[in-house]
Design a protein around this nucleic acid. Structure first.
Length: 564
RNA sequence: GCGCCCGUAGCUCAGCAGGAUAGAGCGUUCGCCUCCUAAGCGAAAGGCCACGCGUUCGAAUCGCGUCGGGCGUGCCA
């Protein structure tokens, strides 16, 4: 496990350093300080399990050829109390180290004893982190961007949880402001059209044209009839919104649940309007001299805080902008509720907003670096190689609901996490439903099912898995077994790296690689063999792999079937 | 115009706190089940890592520039 890997690396580093001291004492090297050097895992394992570039890094300082320095280190190195059994000088001056059987055997012991906790660490030290994602407008159906954002945000949250952060998942509901007015207007027009005919009232170009609006208006009409047709416009619109908005929000909640996303909190923007926090935030900004009035609107002096141009906070008509509410919201997260960090998942088209937001937080006295934004590129949907167009306006776009009806949740969650957020991705609908090797989620699940099947088969033959001794586990020494064990050992580091980079795609890649290495092992080594200790050792390894696959998949909330 | 992201095999993408012969999947070609799940494995073919210059022992990785693509630049969110 990772602790072991770290130990191994640390052991190596100090061995190299003391070898240099010894070499200097013996006169093999000049008495110069050793430069900083790296220890890394070579891409090609014939170059060892770990490799140090100390000789090359210090070539200049020692004024000696790297190769000569490497040999001096080699001649003075002592590996007796490490997990390494040997070392060699290679290439331009690399020192390559090879792990002992002992090491491999111990990794497996550790994995088994940690059980479900394997992979977890205290990297995050319990820091309170909020991950805000999807936060779709409740005025219409959720789209493909929300689909990717949902899988990304939720899996990132799990990864950070494993890495030792205190994680909270949140959905920000934009249930106030401009788009709600637009929503009201759109519903209003559809409602009136329902009774007066389509030509009676015209739907403005910049309102919501989706069928979902018509559907809601018709539902409303069925319940309340035409009694609002001649009512006061604002009364009618309020009634329509009060009817339609909760329905939309409920739909989003049930869709998210179907997508296996459970939020800790659904936060209403309207709360900030109603509880005074928005006004308070604006007041605070005024006090700090961050604002001015012009053309009847209240402006934020963005240009004085790293922004490209000033921004409107309160429109001339008295309505606060989305930006103003968002400032109050982030102040609520970081200051009122005291999260150490807010990680927001945004569509890449909002990137212009990032520096603005961080800048304004700094300006109101909240360290802007406590906000991190993960920008997510758009998804290109394809079907059989053909790009499937999606246009929210026409109402014919493929929605998140459509997607989840068409493809398995496992596949959606997995595939959306195969690419890092920043890269544009293609999502092949045909591939996602395909139950074949081409579909990576099945490939991983298949490895799990295969192991379950082996265990079951052995059990049927009267063979129960048992505890193995270190000596027995040392029998796992084929290249395929070694590679597999080594990869198992890197899980914790991989999760930490994914948390650090806000990139859960590292974990899907990890599990694909694990499945690949297992399938290779499966083809190279038979578990059910005559040699009882070897069979038990292999069975032990299989169970480690099975549990790790299951552990990782369940972290991503993807199922691990026992048979396929 | 200015700002951000991106350019790696035919296609989709890894690799990018600089390291040894640049990887994987798909597609193509050829192999492997009397044996634990062939939803698997192996092999072959496929590359001026967009281009140029620089930094250094060493660059796909870092810097500058060019070209090509995406996005942003609303009293929209």
């Amino acid at each position: 496990m990772s602790k072991l890997v770290k130990d191994a690396e640390q052991q190596l580093r100090s061995s190299v350093i003391s070898a240099v001291s010894k070499a200097i004492a013996a006169g093999d090297l000049p008495a110069m300080p050793l430069c900083e050097f790296n220890i890394e895992v070579p891409a090609d394992r014939t170059n060892g399990d770990f490799s140090a570039n100390a000789a090359m890094a210090s070539a200049r300082s020692f004024k000696l050829a790297p190769r000569k320095i490497a040999e001096a280190i080699y001649n003075n190195i002592f590996l007796g109390d490490t997990y390494f059994e040997r070392c060699e000088v290679a290439g331009p001056g690399f020192l390559n180290f090879f792990l002992s059987d002992e090491y491999y055997a111990n990794i497996l012991k550790d994995i088994r004893s940690l059980g479900d906790d394997y992979g977890k660490s205290n990297f995050g030290k319990g820091k309170r982190v909020m991950i805000e994602f999807v936060s779709a407008n409740p005025t219409g159906p959720m789209h493909m961007g929300n689909a990717r954002g949902g899988a990304l945000g939720d899996c990132l949250a799990s990864v950070m949880d494993y890495a030792g952060f205190d994680v909270s998942r949140e959905f920000y509901i934009n249930d106030a402001g401009n788009q709600i007015d637009k929503f009201a207007l759109s519903l209003d027009v559809r409602y009136l059209q329902h009774f007066l005919g389509e030509d009676a009232v015209e739907l403005p170009e910049d309102s919501y044209h989706g069928e979902d609006i018509t559907t809601r208006a018709n539902e409303f009409a069925e319940i309340y009839g035409d009694k609002f047709v001649n009512a006061d416009e604002s009364e009618r619109r309020k009634a329509l919104v009060d009817f339609a908005l909760p329905k939309n929000i409920e739909n989003m909640q049930s869709t998210m649940l179907k997508y296996r996303i459970e939020y800790d909190k659904w936060f209403n923007e309207s709360l900030l309007h109603n509880n005074g926090e928005l006004a308070e935030t604006l007041e605070l900004m005024k006090e700090r001299g961050l604002t001015y009035e012009s053309d009847g609107a209240l402006w934020y002096k963005s240009t004085e805080h790293g922004g490209e141009k000033d921004e409107v906070l309160v429109r001339a008509n008295g309505n606060p902008t989305y930006f103003a509410a968002d400032i109050a919201y982030h102040r609520n997260k970081l200051s009122v509720r005291g999260f150490d960090k807010s990680i927001d998942i945004w569509g890449a088209d909002h990137h212009g907003h990032v520096s603005r937001m961080k800048g304004v937080l700094d300006a109101i006295g909240i360290d802007g670096s406590r906000l991190d934004v993960v920008l997510m590129q758009l998804v290109r949907l394809t079907r059989g190689g053909e790009v499937v167009r999606m246009s929210k306006r026409t109402g014919k776009a493929i929605t998140l609901v459509d997607l989840l009806e068409e493809i398995p949740i496992d596949a959606a969650r997995f595939i959306f996490n195969m690419r890092e957020a920043g890269s544009q991705m293609e999502f092949d609908l045909d591939l996602a439903v395909e139950q074949s090797s081409q579909n990576p989620v099945y490939y991983c699940q298949y490895a799990h099912a295969r192991i379950c099947s082996i265990v079951k088969k052995l059990k049927a033959g009267g063979i129960e898995p048992r505890e193995c001794s270190i000596e027995e586990l040392k029998l796992l020494n084929t290249p395929e077994e070694r590679e597999l064990i080594l990869h198992l050992s890197s899980l914790t580091d991989e999760i930490i790296s994914a948390a650090k980079n806000y990139d859960p795609a590292k974990i899907t890649r990890y599990v694909i690689e694990l499945a690949t290495l297992f399938h290779k092992f499966y083809n190279a080594c038979r578990v059910s063999v005559e040699d009882e200790p070897l069979m038990q050792a292999r069975l032990y390894l299989c169970i480690c792999v099975r549990d790790t696959i299951k552990n990782v998949l369940s972290m991503l909330k993807i199922t691990a079937p026992e048979s396929m």
